[in-house]
């Protein structure tokens, strides 16, 4: 017999097989015990014929295997196309919580200041009048000393009205240079409304070093405001008054809603007030035993609620305090 012709015939037939059944028949026909090839192999006497027949056998076996796996794969694919899910159905509901928007802002602030080389700290919330007012050079007639504006426990203890006492604490704890930001809760005696809550959060920065300038303060606040609100924001500064800084300024950031054109959010000014700042008043240095001729510094304080509200466009500050999951799960 002609082994080559048989091989070609078999390979052609195998290639044409379209079902596993057909392939099985072909396997029996060409490789079965009674197949022409097997009979020829049993009858072979010379080496040359034997080699040719064996080569044909191997080629046919390989072809069957290859065709077999391709037919199986085709059948699997055919079956899989029947096995269809509705991809618009929701996925499994896995538990995932979320960070409060103020915590998110707190981390942005922390990271921005860490990048500038500041340490992060917080200090006590129940303060003495000495640390909350006296050492920060509040005048005896400053309205913040009034029990109308400030929560008193007794004549000498208050809930801190700003994070500024941290300035005194850090200056008493360590020698300059100091670069620190203090973040935490502060308290003012405001009735609860859409825009005010008697408890809120501030970050307070303090830098004390040799020959710091108002320009350094402007640059620092520009970086931090852009970290919070985006790199396209502009920052401007207005003169102001605080007992513990001189000169004192207030930073404004350009309104992100209208881009500075004026809208309801910025009360049609194009600017949004961000807090207070200034160069450390020499009195504060004197109050902690530092020489104002040797050291200079700047300080600033801003509210976290304001930042959280602006980032998420939350019109009512109470949303941040009510713990309502319908609101909090959005952030």
């Amino acid at each position: 017999m002609d082994a080559g012709a048989l091989k070609n015939e078999a390979l052609g037939a195998i290639e044409a097989a379209s079902t596993p059944g057909e392939l099985d028949e072909l396997r029996v026909r060409y490789l079965g015990r009674k197949s022409e090839l097997k009979q020829a192999l049993r009858a072979v006497r010379d080496r040359e014929t034997g080699m040719a027949l064996n080569e044909a056998r191997v080629a046919i076996e390989d072809a069957v295997d290859v065709r077999q796996s391709s037919l199986e794969r085709a059948e699997l694919d055919r079956n899989l196309t029947q096995d269809v899910v509705d991809v618009t159905l929701p996925g499994e509901e896995l538990p995932l919580g979320g960070l409060h928007p103020i915590t998110q802002v707190r981390r942005i602030v922390e990271d921005a200041f860490l990048g500038l080389g500041y340490e992060v700290r917080d200090d006590r919330e129940v303060e003495t009048v000495e640390y909350n007012f006296d050492k920060l050079a509040f005048a005896p007639t400053h309205s913040a000393r009034s029990s109308r504006d400030t929560f008193f426990f007794d004549d000498t203890h208050v809930l801190r009205t700003e994070t500024s006492p941290s300035q005194i604490h850090v200056l008493e704890e360590k020698a300059p240079p100091i670069y620190m930001v203090s973040i935490g809760r502060v308290y003012r005696r405001d009735a609860i409304t859409a825009t005010r809550y008697p408890i809120f959060h501030q970050f307070e920065g303090l830098a004390v070093d040799k020959s710091l300038t108002l320009a350094d303060l402007k640059g620092t606040l520009l970086h931090v405001m852009r970290a919070l609100y985006g790199p396209e924001r502009r920052v401007r500064f207005r003169t102001h008054f605080f007992p513990f800084t001189e000169p004192s300024i207030e930073p404004d950031v350009s309104c992100g809603i209208c881009g500075g054109e004026g809208c309801r959010t910025c009360k049609y000014s194009g600017w949004i007030e961000m807090g207070g700042a200034g160069m450390v008043d020499p009195r504060v240095f004197e109050n902690v035993g530092l020489d104002p001729e040797e050291w200079s510094g700047f300080a600033f304080g801003c509210g976290l609620e304001r930042a959280a509200q602006l980032r998420h466009d939350v019109p009512d500050i109470r949303v941040l305090w009510e713990g309502d999951l319908r609101a909090l799960r959005q952030f």
Binding site: Y179, G219, L222, I249
Partner: peptide, 23 residues
């Protein structure tokens, strides 16, 4: 300063010490 406020440049301190890390 209050009359020159808008002209004051934006700079960063030239720090000689301190580096920041979370505790």
């Amino acid at each position: 300063a209050r009359f020159r406020l808008e002209d004051v440049p934006f700079t960063l301190p030239e720090r000689r010490a301190m580096f920041g890390t979370l505790t």
